[in-house]
Design a protein around this nucleic acid. Structure first.
Lengths: 197, 197
DNA sequence: AATTAACATACAGGCTGCATGCATGCAACA
DNA sequence: TGTTGCATGCATGCAGCCTGTATGTTAATT
């Protein structure tokens, strides 16, 4: 028989420690900011030492990247769940839009994905993350709409980036207390304006 | 007769020192980033000591705010110059759009105004700066267009913020090497889509 | 049994903000 | 107009924090 506490496989230990660190970091990075959060606080909240942090992550920035990646994946999952392929192109766009705005109301997400993310990791790294998770569904929806001739033909890359940034900005404004209806109305007007009437 | 070097009025000294500090900070904050630039480098480049910096600015962040404010004002001036009130609402919008994209090609501006600015000063503070300088002309142009019935009626606040963020994103993409024509085409399509055809 | 992984601890360097000290401009008054 | 007292502009030194790394130790893996 083996003791309860010790005697875990190395893989389990690694997985658990990494998860604890990411969870503690997410909490602190969102309560304050990346710059205002020290590694000492993070490891204290996670119940480990700074040695463990620097064993699993190259530096504080790499830990932050892991937090951002996880958060982007979570947002993308919520969107995919709300806008399944069974919907029409137009319905999927609307459902996905609302799902995105709802997902971004989860506290801390705007700071992680829209403020600190680009500044700490750089716009290029954030683009890579976005293309792996967030913007992917938006881009597919736009391409589908253009294919069915229901939307003007435009460069998909640019269209995705610009509409995506408008959604991001709406999420920020709504979190800051602006009228969600107003911003939703403008977003829909922008999308409708692209349709071939 | 008074010596060349010394014997300056206090006001002149203050003005000169502040300008030197802001110029040196601008250069370093854009070559690297806010976080990677130390106050020691800044004062060395400005030819003063850290004491002078902390005499004129509350902290490093306040110096950064001064740099950002100056840069936002410069961008706004370039736009106002390119889109005078003599132009029609639609022409002013197009001229102003191009002027903005051109202005943002000045090296370092995207980093100051779009990446580090929001992260370091916060979105609320950046909104305040934007409304004093950048977004003002855009908002006026949009309201004018709506008044002449040439554009759909939409909440001006939200419309300005969302179109503005699309412009910001276009500036970032173009600087990163994307096709300026593609992004310009999408921006114009978004604006055209809002017109009452 | 030997090696490697997963940590803990201690240390070095850098960086920010403040407190103190000094010199110069300035203003009021004789 | 000269001088006397105060405020302003700035330099220097110090204290505290924070990151990243090097070293040591225990437990798992082979």
């Amino acid at each position: 028989m083996q003791q309860e506490t010790g005697r875990r496989s190395n893989r389990d230990r690694t997985e658990a420690t990494r998860a604890d660190l990411i969870a503690a970091a997410r909490k602190l990075f969102t309560e304050k900011s990346y710059a205002e959060t020290g590694t000492a606080e993070i490891v204290a909240a996670a119940g480990v030492t700074r040695g463990a942090l620097y064993h699993h992550f190259a530096d504080k920035q790499a830990l932050f990247a892991a937090v951002v990646e996880q958060e982007a994946a979570a947002v993308a999952r919520e969107i995919d769940r709300a806008a399944p392929p069974s919907l029409s192109a137009r319905d999927a766009m609307i459902a996905g839009s609302d799902a995105y705005l709802t997902a971004m109301r989860t506290p801390g997400r705007t700071r992680l994905l829209l403020l600190d993310g680009p500044a700490v990791l750089g716009r290029a790294a954030m683009d890579a993350i976005d293309n792996r998770h967030g913007n992917r569904s938006l881009r597919e929806g736009l391409v589908a709409s253009m294919r069915t001739q229901s939307m003007k033909r435009l460069p998909p890359e640019a269209l995705t980036a610009l509409l995506g940034s408008a959604f991001d900005r709406a999420a920020l404004a709504i979190e800051a207390g602006a009228s969600a209806e107003d911003y939703r109305a403008v977003l829909m007007a922008l999308i409708d304006g692209l349709s071939r009437a």
